[in-house]
Amino acid sequence: MSFWRKVFAITWKDVLAEMRTKEIISAVLVFTLLVIVIFNFAFGTSPDVVKLVASGMLWVTFAFSGVLSLNRAFVMEKEEGCFEGLMVAPVSREIIYTGKMLGSLLFLLIIEAIALPIFAFLFNLGVFSWQLIVIVFLTTVGFVGVGTLFSALAVNTKAREMVLPILFFPIVIPIIIGAVKASESALSGGSWGDISSWLGITGAFDVIFLVVSYLIFAFVIEE
């Protein structure tokens, strides 16, 4: 289908550029590790404390990493007017949204896939449960779904980097709550049943905001 071919062309272009520079992944990864280290000093590493705050730490870290990497998503398009190049091409605005969203999703998932084991290693946690993987995936989809919309918006404002967190965090609070609660259960060996209602909320959030962002993206990028 032509829609997906063009979507993947846009995503592939982002992947290619990222493979060249490793700008987003390397910088955000270093940032992520630094945050984890700072948390270590803030809370200490006694098993009791870790058990209590691990899930919260994880999601504070991922939420900040998400904002940081989403902030970069459209910067590349602004240089040399590339975004206008996309606008004059025979692709719908929805294709642009989907392509950029998938790129950000991929980058963020890679960052998380690297950060999670390190997190587990440093805090002596068992993170490899299917529950946790599903939680991380669903929450990340929610992040990039609405984050791509706001990132495109923020890059067109005067204070670029400042704007995204202010818009992004209030909207994603529900899925951060869900991710923290569900991860807490998953890290202590909870079953699917314990987290099902959280997965439900996060899933609903994902679907709703992918659709809404898809529909109103055109209004953000028009001039």
Partner: peptide
């Protein structure tokens, strides 16, 4: 005057 080209590609 903008080239619409990605510098890293």
């Amino acid at each position: 005057h903008n080239t619409f080209l990605y510098g890293n590609l």
